[in-house]
Design a protein around this nucleic acid. Sequence first.
DNA 1: TTCAATTACTATCTTAAGGTAGTATTAATA
DNA 2: TATTAATACTACCTTAAGATAGTAATTGAA
Lengths: 137, 137
Amino acid sequence: MQLSNTSQYAIRILAYIADQADSPLVNATQLSQRLHIPYKFLTKIMTTLVKKDLILSIRGKEGGYALKRDSSEIMVGDILDIFNDSIQDEQCVLGIGFCNGMCKCALHDQWMEPKHLLQKMFRESSLKDIAGRGCKI
Amino acid sequence: MQLSNTSQYAIRILAYIADQADSPLVNATQLSQRLHIPYKFLTKIMTTLVKKDLILSIRGKEGGYALKRDSSEIMVGDILDIFNDSIQDEQCVLGIGFCNGMCKCALHDQWMEPKHLLQKMFRESSLKDIAGRGCKI
DNA sequence: TTCAATTACTATCTTAAGGTAGTATTAATA
DNA sequence: TATTAATACTACCTTAAGATAGTAATTGAA
């Protein structure tokens, strides 16, 4: 049970850029090297983040990437949403079609509390909150 | 972020069998139909569970499957272990190589509590605890 | 002893995630 | 304007999960 590679990469990328708030633009080569993410895969993710309006990109010489909004306004949950990796309210831990009060799965009750904590963690952690915390390898 | 299909199936299968403690054996056709799991995929999972000693199988006419141990002694975590889907102590939510006190990821602190709750949920829920709870579709 | 019902085994197909390659486009600067 | 350094686009390759197909082995019972 874990986040997809792509989601993990995206969070680390965005946190890294948030961390470099002083330097205006960060480029793909630097991100790839510092975060150990394959260059071509990274640029694919970046293009997605640009289309989803989390990232601003400048093409051409001296170009690069920057956050499009303030780091306090980009939540980890927003990132997971893009890659369909966030936890939905109705999400059943055992994957049965319709898991609620009427017809709930065997683990429904046990799942509620960790699910809410995870959702809270993703919803309430902004890039500003998590940037600058330890290493980003 | 969710369990693999295979893990979800395995938990539902085992909980269903635990639930039928009165009837001696349950067969693959019944499991497949009641739980809506593709027959051939289900039998593949069953064979794995037999090899891992969670399930006892009887071949031939009148054959089928039964739990090999008491339902109170099979934990959800044991099932996830088999399919490499359990949450390890050192597991980093952002997938960086080595995430601990020395070199921790940006989400390390926020991840601790939900991680422990999930581990607890998986470690402490036995088939006996969860059998007979609602529908198993 | 034959038949039918069952699990086990082996091989293959399908799909999506993860990753790579090559080329086109953009823009600063010499 | 030519060069260079950057992102964007399109297409493809690789791998593992999920699923399927066919056959072999086992066993109870007619």
